[in-house]
Amino acid sequence: MINFLSQFMKEHFDNLTLKPPLFYSWEYGIRFEISIPWVEHEDKSNLQQIEERINSIFNKVFSDGDEMLLITDIHCERNDSFLQKRPTKVYQKYIKDKELRLKLQYRMLPSVFEDYEEIVTHRFVLPCKKSDIRYKPLLTAISYEDFPHPSQILKGFPRNGIDIYFVNVTRKMIYHLYDDRGCDVIASNKEDLRSLYEDLNDWILDYDQEQIDQLFK
């Protein structure tokens, strides 16, 4: 399945390296603002906005029948003990079917980020569908990753980094909630993003609004 991911990225995304920031790495993309700027994360109105936006965007990118890949990249030093202490926690906690978890594939890669020779990327890839994932609590956990919270995925390992990608194999789109501040959605075909652009235009990050408007003119 990891080989399938490589072929998928080669065929539909011109061999794009799967790493943040996706929006600035690919010609067809939208960057959404998720949290309220300059407001405490735990503010009730902020938490409500985060939940509404991360789930609404996700539900517009993924339909129930779409084939998906749930990808988790853990970035850490080569000899880090994280995986021995907490292996594939994302899949144990957020994938409903134990049998499906048996399809999980793993590979250790050189760091996806340049100039970090001492860092490696542990990549996990699982083929699934939307209904297989407890995606609402998973997205919430991602939004809390930079804050003390029981759902923190890398809790106790502050030097490590994590990126979780939801790849829509059917529609050739990728959803990446990079933290509580924002979410990137890219697509192989610009027109597959148009409904997101039109329906959720008010959520687009102001900084990138002009560039995104130009894309859809």
Rank of each mutant, 00 (worst) to 15 (best):
H41T: 01
Y135Q: 01
S45Y: 13
Q209D: 07
L22N: 11
F124S: 15
D184S: 01
I74P: 10
E11M: 00
Q84M: 02
P87Y: 01
Q214G: 13
D199L: 04
R159A: 06
F8N: 01
F157E: 13
L18I: 15
Y197H: 08
R86Y: 01
I164Y: 11
I2L: 15
F62Y: 06
L104H: 12
L193N: 08
L5W: 05
V167K: 06
I186Y: 03
P127C: 04
F124H: 14
T121E: 03
F113T: 07
F216A: 03
Y197F: 15
W26A: 00
S195L: 05
H122V: 01
S188Q: 14
P87D: 05
T140V: 06
P87T: 00
A187L: 00
T140H: 15
L47D: 05
T17G: 02
Y144H: 11
L193M: 10
I162E: 05
E117W: 06
Q84K: 04
E145C: 07
F113W: 13
S111E: 05
S56P: 01
A141Q: 11
Y207D: 11
K217A: 09
K19L: 07
N15C: 05
I186T: 06
P37V: 05
D202S: 14
H149T: 07
R123L: 12
F147M: 10
R31N: 15
L102R: 14
S151M: 07
C128I: 13
E210V: 14
S131I: 08
H149I: 11
I95F: 08
Y116M: 14
E117C: 00
D208N: 05
I174D: 08
E51Y: 11
R159V: 00
L139E: 12
L83R: 14
W203Y: 06
K172D: 04
L100Q: 15
Y94T: 10
E51H: 11
Y207L: 11
D115F: 11
R107W: 04
L193V: 08
L104F: 10
G65W: 08
T88C: 13
G156W: 02
L47Y: 10
R181F: 15
F124I: 04
I133N: 08
I133A: 08
E145M: 04
R181W: 15
R53Y: 12
R134N: 15
L5Y: 06
E40A: 08
L205E: 14
F113G: 06
S111C: 14
K136W: 02
L70H: 07
Y116T: 14
D179R: 03
Q84F: 07
D66V: 01
F113I: 10
M1P: 10
L69S: 13
F124Y: 15
L126G: 07
I204L: 07
I54K: 06
L200S: 02
C183R: 01
P21N: 12
L177G: 02
